[in-house]
């Protein structure tokens, strides 16, 4: 790793409001070359952080969206047998059928290893995959290399990527996994922080609207018996809706009316409960 890159420190992106504590943790993880595991409620900006790091350090971002059915090999490389079969029959491509390497496609982790520059690798929602996947993946990330069995070749990372892993689960991941990561839990932002986040997304937003919208939002989050509480993403969309509605007046919010409740609550039982509770706001 060149000195210049090592000296790069992460200080936030243009659309991301960074908490100082988190900045330190990111920098320590980069320096120690350890994956950073982020946990926290949906909507606390776990995924956004990786985007912000990539932007701030001017590195390319590679995103691996983990799916429950995913196997580790899919994240590393793919041997495109179907194309090869097709080529061998019709022979109208430029690929060399006898060379298997022409049919190996890199997966996301593979790409991050093969890249000439140092990249940010975001492994999103790791909790969706099973424990074996998680442990095996960390082995690969630890050793920074993997084998392509079909062509008996080892892919080594040219530059150790900056790795950010996110997880929504409240359940803990396996011990060996945790042992190899740095850990941070992002708490849901406080109202003050939230105001700043909103301001980043809507520059020059009307102060009155901002205050009452955020206040109403936190009041709505207090409602009991909700399965999926509205998060930052919902708030942003909701404010966007409020601003685009010509009939909307900020006074309505103060009075206890909540238009566009469906933007905030997306599950029908939640919506019903929230509507009920909002009815009581007005009383």
């Amino acid at each position: 790793m060149s000195k210049e890159i090592q000296n790069r420190k992460f200080k936030g992106g243009s659309k991301y409001v960074l908490d100082e504590e988190l900045a330190k943790i990111v920098n320590i993880s980069i320096a120690l070359e350890m994956p950073l595991l982020l946990k926290g409620e949906p909507g606390t900006g776990k995924t956004m952080l990786a985007h912000a790091i990539a932007e701030a350090l001017q590195m390319r971002l590679i995103v691996l969206n983990v799916k429950s059915s995913m196997k580790l090999i899919d994240a590393l490389y793919q041997y495109d047998t179907l194309t090869r079969l097709n080529d061998s029959r019709f022979g109208d491509s430029k690929r060399d059928v006898s060379n298997i390497e022409d049919y190996i496609k890199m997966g996301k982790i593979g790409q991050s290893f093969a890249s000439d520059e140092r990249v940010v690798l975001l492994i999103d929602e790791i909790d969706k995959a099973d424990t074996d996947f998680q442990d095996d993946m960390l082995d690969v990330l630890d050793q920074m290399e993997f084998d392509i069995i079909e062509i008996d070749k080892t892919v080594k990372a040219q530059n150790r990527p900056v790795i950010v892993i996110t997880s929504n689960a409240k359940k803990d991941l396996s011990d060996p996994f945790l042992g190899r990561c740095n850990f941070h839990h992002i708490a849901f932002p406080e109202p003050d922080m939230m105001r700043k986040i909103v301001e980043v997304h809507f520059s020059g937003i009307d102060k009155e609207l901002l205050d009452s919208a955020v206040r109403t939002f936190y009041r709505l989050r207090e409602i009991k018996g909700i399965e999926k509480k509205p998060a930052t993403r919902e708030l942003i969309n909701w404010i966007r809706a409020l601003r685009s509605d010509p009939d909307f007046r900020v006074k309505d919010l103060v009075k206890g009316e909540v238009p566009f409740l469906g933007i905030l609550y997306k599950k029908s039982p939640d919506y019903a409960v929230a509507q009920n509770a909002v009815g009581r706001f007005r009383a």
Binding site: N7, V17, A23, N27, V200
Partner: peptide, 16 residues
Amino acid sequence: VGHSGYHPGGMRVGGV
């Protein structure tokens, strides 16, 4: 940490 060093776009420390 977070107060100096290389960064093109200027930094935003918010909230906490």
